[in-house]
Design a protein around this nucleic acid. Structure first.
Lengths: 340, 340
DNA sequence: CTGAAAGCGCTTACAG
DNA sequence: CTGAAAGCGCTTACAG
C-alpha cells in the first residue's frame, strides 16, 4: 500500500508538506507542489479513508436510512435512493445504504461508530421513532417525508395537502361533481404513512368547500384484490365521473377494469394518479398524474445535509420544504360525459 | 466521544485488556470481563469505525456497484440491492451503494482508499470494463451476472440458457408449434446485457431441435411503443399460439393488447414471462413467469464474498453458480386452441 | 514557505 | 491472565 510517507519521500519533502500540498490548506511553492503531484501520479497514491476519517473526524460518507413498509410500493423507493446517491457523489460523498429492520438500532450503531457525516431518512412516518435519536445524534440529519413533529429537523416532501386539493380542483373546474378517491392500504397509514391521509383529508375538505361529492376508499396494494375493489367502487358510485388514485397498484390495474366495463378515459371517466413519470412510462399507466418527484426530493435533501455538515448553513434554522405538486398531463381528464 | 480509554479507566484495567475483553481474542478472567462489559454499558461505548479500520485493515463494509443501462428495467434492480444489503447485515457488514456513472473510476477510488472489504458487482456485462480492475484489486469481488470471461471471479446468475430452453420446452410439451419471443431492446444487448441473447439463442436452438417455429423480436422498453409492437407481432404471426416475454414492459402492456383484440390467455394464447414474483403481484402481470430470483442471487453473492473476505474459502476456486430457472405458474399456459 | 512531532482511537505483538 | 508500547496512515497546531 502506498502511503503519504512514500509520496513525501519520492517528492523529497516532509509528510506534512505533502499533505498540505494535496489539501491546499496552506500556501506551497509551485515547485514543491509539482513534485508532490508528480509523486502522487507516479505512485498511484490514494489517501486511506479510515486514516483520514480518524484524523479529521470526517468520513465523506452519508448514511441513507431506507424503510420499507409492508403493502407500500417498494420499487418507488429506488428513485429516492438514486436521487440521493447521485447528488451525494456530485458533492464528494459516498452513500452507506442502511435497510435494517430496526431503524433506531441501526441509526445508533452507525452514528456512534462515526461511520458517516450525516443521515438522510427516507419514508419518514407521522410518528417516527428514529427522530428522537436523530435529534440527539452528533451528526446532522435530513428527512424525506414530513413527520407529525418536525421540530429541529430539515424536511423535504411533496406537498400532499396541495396535491389532494389540486386533484379535486382540477376535476371540479372541468365540471365534475362526483369523484372517487382510492388511497393506499390503511396498513400504510397505520404504520405512519401520514401522507396518505394528508392527501385524502385535503381532498375531502376541498371537495366539501366546492360542493363536490368525494367517495374515499383505502385500496389494496396488489392484484387481483385492487382490481375487484375498483370494479366494486364503480358499481357502487355510478354517478362518479372522476377517479383520483393515490395508489400505484390501482393505477396499474385500472386499464383492465375500465376496458372490461367498456369504459374509456377520459370520455367516460377522468383519472388523475400520483406516481412518478418513470413508472408511467415503463408500465401501462396512461393517466395524468402528480409526479412524486422522488429524485428531486432526494437531491434537495442531500444538498441541505451537505450544507449542514460543511457548516455553511445556520444551525438554528431548520427548513420544511414542501414541493409544490404538478400534474403531468397524459390526457386522461376532460369535461364529464353528458348524461341522458 | 467515549473511547476504549474511558472504558479501560472506568473498568480499572488497561486499554489492551479492555480491547481483548471485547474481542475475545485472548483469555480474560470472568471478573475483568464483567467489569469491562459493565463499563461499556454504563458509558454507552461504541468503537470508532475509522480507528478500527485503520488498525485492522478491515472496514466491515461491502461495496455494491450498481449499473443502470438505459432502456433496461431499473426498478428490478431494487430487489438485488435489498438482497445484498440484508444478507450483508446478517453477516455483520454494512453496504456502500455505488451508482457512479463511471464504474471503473469508482471501483478504483473505493478500492484504493480502502473503504470496503470487498465488492459486489451488479448487472455485469458480457464484456465488462470493471472486471480487469477488479481482478487486480486488493479486495475480493463477486459478480451478479455472467460475463463473457469470468476467469478468476465468483459469479452468480440466473441460468438464462436453461431459461430459454425451459420456456420453449414447456410450451412444446403442451403441443405448441409456433411461438413468438419478445426480448428486451437491442440497446440492452449492445451495452453488454448478454443474458438477453443467451436466453434468445437457447430458445432458438431448442425450438429448432424440437421442430418448433420461433419468431424473435427485440421489443421496446416502454409504452406506447411496446404495445404497438406486440399488436404488430400478433398480426404478423397469426399462427403463433405461444408468447415468450423476456421484457417486463411487454408483460405490463400485454393485457391491454390481448383484450383489445378479444383474446384471452391461455384460451387463445399461452404466455410465459421472465420477471420477479414481486412485480407480478404489484402490477397486473397475470402470466406464468420464470422468477428472476434477484434477492436469492444477491444473498448468495454476499455469502460467497464474505467467505472470501474472512478467508474461509480456497482462494484458488472461483465458482460460477447459475441458478436453475423455475416457472411460477399463474395459469397462463395450456394446450393450444384447436383451429377450425 | 517548510519540517518534526503529536494526536485521532483502535489492535496486537512483546514482556512479564 | 494482564500491561506498556508501538503502529495503522492520516492531519494539523507548533516552531522556525
Amino acid at each position: 500500500m502506498v502511503t503519504i510517507g512514500d509520496v513525501a519521500r519520492v517528492a523529497g519533502v516532509s509528510r506534512s508538506t505533502a499533505s498540505y500540498a494535496l489539501s491546499g490548506k496552506r500556501s506551497i511553492s509551485a515547485e514543491v507542489r509539482d513534485k508532490v503531484e508528480q509523486a502522487v501520479r507516479d505512485l498511484g497514491y490514494t489517501p486511506n479513508a479510515g486514516a483520514k476519517a480518524l484524523a479529521t473526524s470526517q468520513t465523506q460518507v452519508l448514511g441513507l436510512l431506507a424503510r420499507f413498509l409492508e403493502d407500500e410500493f417498494a420499487p418507488a423507493m429506488l428513485q429516492y435512493i438514486l436521487g440521493v446517491t447521485n447528488e451525494a457523489r456530485a458533492r464528494g460523498y459516498d452513500t452507506l445504504l442502511i435497510t435494517d429492520e430496526d431503524g433506531v438500532a441501526a441509526l445508533r450503531r452507525i452514528s456512534e461508530s462515526r461511520m458517516v457525516d450525516g443521515f438522510i431518512l427516507l419514508n419518514v412516518a407521522e410518528s417516527d421513532d428514529r427522530l428522537g435519536f436523530l435529534r440527539a445524534a452528533s451528526q446532522p440529519g435530513t428527512l424525506v417525508g414530513l413527520p407529525g413533529d418536525p421540530t429541529g429537523l430539515d424536511v423535504f416532501d411533496l406537498d400532499f395537502v396541495a396535491a389532494g386539493r389540486l386533484m379535486v380542483e382540477t376535476l371540479h373546474e372541468l365540471g365534475h361533481r362526483s369523484l372517487i378517491l382510492v388511497s393506499q392500504p390503511e396498513h400504510v397509514l397505520e404504520r405512519g404513512g401520514a401522507y396518505v391521509s394528508r392527501l385524502a383529508n385535503a381532498a375531502q375538505q376541498r371537495a366539501a368547500e366546492l360542493g363536490v361529492e368525494l367517495h374515499h376508499h383505502f385500496g389494496a396494494s396488489s392484484q387481483p384484490q385492487i382490481g375487484v375493489e375498483l370494479a366494486n367502487l364503480l358499481d357502487a358510485h355510478p354517478e362518479a365521473t372522476g377517479l383520483l388514485l393515490n395508489n400505484e397498484a390501482a393505477a396499474a390495474a385500472l386499464p383492465n377494469v375500465l376496458q372490461s366495463r367498456g369504459l374509456a378515459s377520459p370520455a367516460d371517466i377522468s383519472v388523475i394518479g400520483r406516481y412518478s413519470d418513470d413508472f408511467a412510462r415503463t408500465f401501462s399507466l396512461p393517466y395524468s398524474a402528480i409526479d412524486s418527484a422522488a429524485d428531486e426530493l432526494g437531491r434537495r435533501a442531500v444538498e441541505r445535509l451537505v450544507s449542514r455538515i460543511e457548516g455553511t448553513v445556520d444551525a438554528e434554522s431548520p427548513v420544511v420544504d414542501l414541493f409544490a405538486p404538478r400534474i403531468d398531463d397524459r390526457g386522461s381528464t376532460s369535461v364529464p360525459p353528458t348524461r341522458q
